[in-house]
């Protein structure tokens, strides 16, 4: 039996609340995933370290503060440095459409803006896992 999908839900930066992240965390749990929730004010380095230690398939990051263009590329680079390029990096929160291409170029697989139905996030992750998840991503190079 394959283990449940493991997801790190993380909240970097100075955001003062994490309601959205908690809603996503609960939705993923209800979809049968093991969700590791880190709480507020995580530095990119700590998020990467948590991803290493928890051996997750997915890192889902929520940013409301407007600092997404600095925080997310740092997390993506950190994951690469640790050899975790296979991990699926997702972003959510308040992210303007015009910033999405830059984030994707930096290694973010998908961006889920405000008002995204959590079902869409669940479906995206499950679809990615069905295609082989981190293993396939690694084999594709």
């Amino acid at each position: 039996m394959r283990r449940p999908i493991r997801v790190l839900v993380a909240k970097p930066g100075l955001d003062s609340h994490d309601r959205g992240a908690k809603v996503v965390a609960r939705a993923l749990r209800d979809a049968g995933m093991e969700v590791i929730y880190t709480g507020l004010h995580q530095t990119p380095a700590r998020i990467v370290e948590a991803a290493v230690q928890e051996d997750v398939d997915v890192v889902a990051v929520s940013v409301l503060s407007g600092a997404h263009l600095t925080l997310l590329p740092r997390i993506a680079a950190g994951l690469r440095d640790e050899g975790l390029d296979g991990v699926l990096l997702l972003a959510g929160g308040i992210i303007p459409d015009e910033d999405v291409p830059a984030l994707k170029a930096a290694g973010v697989a998908a961006v889920f803006g405000p008002g995204t139905n959590t079902d869409a996030i669940v479906a995206f992750i499950k679809n990615w896992m069905e295609k082989g998840g981190a293993d396939a991503a690694r084999d594709r190079g």
């Binding site: 449940p4 609960r26 993923l28 749990r29 093991e34 969700v35 530095t43 380095a45 948590a50 230690q53």
Partner: peptide, 28 residues
Amino acid sequence: SPFTGGALLGDRIRLDGDAPDPGLFFRS
């Protein structure tokens, strides 16, 4: 959860410090 198999693992929240500490390994 006995129904979905999912779990919310929130104990890491109580870890503090800005930089990760190589002397501490935490697994949920």
